[in-house]
Design a protein around this nucleic acid. Structure first.
Lengths: 189, 189
DNA sequence: GTCTATATAGAGATAGAC
DNA sequence: GTCTATCTCTATATAGAC
């Protein structure tokens, strides 16, 4: 694996566990096995590293999400799969990882302009995908809820980000499943 | 106002906007108008400052929450008031502030043990209060939902924390209201 | 592309005068 | 209780050899 990828992998894992502000070149240097100065060859500044990390994370995430949305399952199954992405992140590896974009959302006032914009877009685009699934659920009869789909999509996305945050804070990964199961109880036909 | 209180006020506002890791004695020093060294007289370490901040924040928060819970309104109105606490924080002051405990939740892996414990307790205690309101709502007939009250309480708390995070990330405070209104549409009788 | 060496800034923290 | 002065450590970043 090339060094650039290794750096991004380590940096992303650090963002997902301790956040961008607590992440340092020293951390990355030790984990990758190169000197701090060498990181600057691949990413001239920390801001550039974070920007690159966000771009890759978004691209990958929507790659998976769009596959779910375009699939042939019923809407409620698509929603389950979507929720599974978040739960999978929480259960990924030894350390419980948060959504990188959730962590950066908390730190958004300390990010550069480009990064802050991308975080905002990530949220809006997730809600758009969710809204599509919800509309489909009303059509195929697998989902039922009061209110408009975009508002419900906003609720679901905030809920999933919040549940990751709270589950980690409680040191109880299972809490995420309790909450997401409760969501499905509310909107499943 | 005494210096200790001023320091706590500034530190709390900083945690709520940029987070504990981005907050420095330099920031506090400038805002309060004393030297960095003087802060150490009141709080020997940053960890002690954060611990004190958390204790005060929790105490104040539950002071208000318990008044809401103990009031004579219907459960749905109590829930509205509870949600209003979060929205009020978001709209407090010029800068949009997050819940201090939400910010610290994101940073929980970088906190000391005492602080991490208190964050965890804050979450659990909020859910307990919410569960009480939800039980009451089923009794007084103002709330209706599938599933158990503790699970629903977990959902609501994660939702509110997540909605604050996402609303700030989207740079759209109104988003919080859209989401919280949608919640009420789902569970109001 | 990675290294050593270094620059510069800022962090949290301490000692001791007033 | 606040100050000046200083310490130590770590942060991001750069220069230039290999």
């Amino acid at each position: 694996m090339d060094t650039r990828t290794q750096i991004l992998d380590v940096a992303q894992a650090l963002v997902q566990t301790i956040g961008a502000n607590a992440m340092s070149y020293q951390h990355i240097s030790e984990a990758v096995g190169i000197r701090k100065a060498s990181i600057h060859h691949h990413f001239p500044t920390k801001e550039a590293l974070i920007d690159a990390l966000i771009e890759r994370y978004s691209e990958r995430f929507f790659g998976v999400v769009d596959q779910i949305v375009a699939g042939r399952k019923t809407a409620v199954h698509k929603l389950r799969d979507y929720i599974g992405l978040f739960e999978g992140t929480l259960r990924d590896g030894a350390q419980d990882k948060a959504c990188a974009m959730g962590m950066l959302g908390a730190e958004v006032r300390t990010l550069g302009e480009a990064a802050a914009d991308r975080v905002s877009q990530f949220y809006a685009q997730n809600e758009r995908r969710l809204s599509t699934i919800l509309d489909e659920g009303r059509r195929d009869g697998t989902l039922r809820f009061e209110g408009a789909s975009p508002a419900m999509a906003g609720l679901i996305f905030s809920l999933l980000e919040g549940a990751m945050l709270v589950s980690r804070g409680r040191n109880d990964v299972e809490h995420f499943r309790v909450v997401s199961d409760q969501l499905l109880k509310l909107i499943r036909s």
